[in-house]
């Protein structure tokens, strides 16, 4: 039996949505701290531009495209869930997961290539930031994909459809973090 507390809505916003925004806000400050640290370094050290020149903008750009597309299918999944079409929402969530997998595989190949060229996490502080920031982001992609699979399983049976929106909010956040990482790590030379 669920406590009555879980059914109340005194502030007029569903509890689940409040909670997911809390998660997103705390993640924003975590990535915010990391990125501001990086930006302060970049501003003080023009020579980091030379290190950044060794990153591959095309691969980064491709991954940006993949993530943006996966966000689109997350939006469509939400729309399907609002219309009460659980199976369709589930299918769209699987599509989003497919995007996540593509992203991670491409990322792994990219890192492999960079490491084989001798740019490792301990080469210097630029590469430390490069691998740590992207790695932390990658973990969020993987975690999000796993949660999405679980939600898709229940959504398929038309259960707990409101969760589709919540994972969507989280997924947009993961997407937006990448939108910051891409120019900061790849484009700025």
């Amino acid at each position: 039996m669920r406590p009555i507390a879980t059914t109340r809505m005194a502030a007029g916003i569903p509890t689940g949505r409040l909670a997911i925004w809390w998660v997103v806000a705390s993640e924003i400050v975590i990535f915010g701290g990391l990125l501001v640290s990086y930006i302060m370094h970049r501003l003080a050290k023009p020579e980091w531009g030379d290190h950044a020149a060794n990153t591959n903008v095309w691969i980064g750009g491709f991954n940006t495209f993949v993530l943006l597309t996966s966000s689109l299918s997350a939006v469509l999944a939400h729309k399907a869930a609002v219309n009460g079409d659980g199976p369709k929402a589930a299918k769209l969530l699987y599509a989003t997961c497919f995007g996540a997998c593509t992203f991670v595989v491409v990322k792994a190949l990219e890192w492999n290539m960079e490491i084989s060229h001798g740019f490792t996490i301990s080469s210097n502080t630029f590469w430390s930031f490069y691998y740590t920031a992207a790695g932390l982001h990658g973990l969020h992609v993987i975690a999000g994909a796993i949660i999405m699979l679980i939600i898709a399983e229940t959504a398929k049976k038309n259960l707990e459809l409101h969760r589709v929106e919540l994972i969507g909010i989280y997924w947009h956040f993961v997407d937006i973090v990448w939108i910051f990482l891409f120019p900061l790590l790849y484009i700025a030379k």
Binding site: G33, S37, K45, F129, Y131
Partner: peptide, 27 residues
């Protein structure tokens, strides 16, 4: 707390992986 969580990750990596976030020798 977010920035410090990020900081803790960086410090942990400095301790165990050999990153150079707080090491002036490598920038």
């Amino acid at each position: 707390v977010g920035p410090l969580i990020a900081g803790a990750v960086m410090l942990f990596m400095d301790q165990n992986v050999g990153t150079a976030f707080f090491d002036p020798d490598k920038g």
